[in-house]
Design a protein around this nucleic acid. Sequence first.
DNA 1: TATTGTTATACTCTATAACTATA
DNA 2: TATAGTTATAGAGTATAACAATA
Lengths: 162, 162
Amino acid sequence: MSDADALHPAQLGTYFALMEAVSLLQHAVEQQLRAEGDLSYVQFQLLAHLADARQLTMTELADGVVYSRSGLTYQAGLLEKAGLVTRGPSPDDERATLVTITEGGLALVGRVLPGHIEVVRRLLFNPLTDEDLHDLGDIMTRVRDHMRAEPPRSAAPRKPRK
Amino acid sequence: MSDADALHPAQLGTYFALMEAVSLLQHAVEQQLRAEGDLSYVQFQLLAHLADARQLTMTELADGVVYSRSGLTYQAGLLEKAGLVTRGPSPDDERATLVTITEGGLALVGRVLPGHIEVVRRLLFNPLTDEDLHDLGDIMTRVRDHMRAEPPRSAAPRKPRK
DNA sequence: TATTGTTATACTCTATAACTATA
DNA sequence: TATAGTTATAGAGTATAACAATA
């Protein structure tokens, strides 16, 4: 037995606290989005990206949202059915699909965002000082960029039977 | 229009970085757990709690894992079917179900944990200094405790039509 | 050939409500 | 009455693989 599990207790505790806190936050945020906009978090993310860019290809939209292509097609289909986005061919690349946010989509984001922010403020930022906020932003930005750069490392070294 | 959305840009950026980083981490961790132990993250969490306590009631097991009761019953059923836990009545309270981890369950946790920790170390802790680690642990512990204490605040203030 | 996106399909997970049994 | 847990069921989401079309 190696000491591969010799992660410091502090590290393990930090990891679990991080995961649990975000899990709780995500749960709260999803309730708010569902109640005020009938949106899942993923759908909100997609709309938020589109509210910023107005128009993106499926591939561009997939960046920053982890999914499989088919998952994105599914979600885009839902958003289109709800009248929040439209889909059409791209003039530049005939293979691409351009997703465009509608007025209704923009309106919905505007309607949902304040409550969303309120939840985040109450749950995440309330117990933090300005310095905490700065530290957390700095740390998580670094971690995120590091993860984005990491080679996907397809799964695991080996796969014990069963 | 109120200034309800006047969350500082720094706050919004921190929030998004946090959510995205954790999303990426969770994705990576789930792949590892699936590949090396055929477990979901939830199942791993349940087994990890049980590896620590050996025996818990369903209600105790539900603490720290957000779910609905039925969701927990479902997961416990899967773990039992896989031979990783057993379920039986409690001597203290005839209503309660005692969930006990088996030797196989303990072995599986032992087999999966090193790889799990390796992924967390590589993705989360690699780009962090000791001071970052300390800050992050301190911050997220405080946030988590704050969220746990928060009144569930059932959903949202009001629900715009549509 | 590689890339973009969709479809078909199967599966996992989660939540709600109704129900049983014990406290 | 309240609490612990299960069941039935329905719905949302995700992934894989096969496919079509364009670059």
